[in-house]
């Protein structure tokens, strides 16, 4: 479990942050597709904090609850109050190559992949919480 682990909010540390997260997920999730999806989701959220929040640190929580069936991510930062979930993603997955813009993919990916996203600003920090519930054979190795 990663519980509120602080990292300097620097791009060069992103691989280390993602490794800590994927090592944790790897203990619980055995479906390679979901391992990959959760890494993509984490990268999108972390890079937004690193590049745009103005925070010196990012705080990462990655825990499995509910008899290991529910993944809960929490990403916190001390930057400018900002709710990314208020940004409307304008991704049109049916658009053709000429119509397709290059923006909005990050938020589209993590809001599509995760079951539930929440934002709150508390104690001087942005908190972005992402929940994914796994059902039986979908992805989980039941905790030993």
């Amino acid at each position: 479990m990663l519980k509120n682990v602080a990292f300097p909010a620097k791009r060069e540390l992103l691989p280390e942050m993602l490794k800590k997260i994927t090592d944790e997920i790897d203990k619980h999730v055995k479906d390679s597709k979901w391992l990959n999806r959760l890494k993509v989701c984490s990268e999108e959220i972390l890079i937004n904090i690193i590049d745009y929040s103005g925070s010196d640190k990012v705080y990462i929580t990655c825990e499995f609850l509910d008899a290991e069936k529910t993944l809960r991510f929490e990403f916190a930062d001390e930057g400018t109050p900002y709710n990314p979930l208020e940004e409307k993603s304008e991704v049109d997955i049916d658009a053709d190559i000429d119509e397709r813009g290059i923006g909005g993919l990050g938020i589209f990916l993590y809001t599509t992949m995760m079951d539930k996203m929440e934002y709150r600003y508390a104690n001087g920090k942005n908190h972005l919480i992402a929940i994914k519930k796994f059902s039986g054979k979908e992805a989980m190795a039941v905790a030993e």
């Binding site: 390679s32 597709k33 391992l35 990959n36 999806r37 049109d92 053709d96 190559i97 397709r100 990916l109």
Partner: peptide, 17 residues
């Protein structure tokens, strides 16, 4: 690979490209 195809599918890239 399958994991990359998954992301391409989710975003509609698989039919756009």
């Amino acid at each position: 690979i399958d994991e990359v195809v998954d992301v391409l599918q989710m975003t509609g890239f698989i039919k756009m490209l």
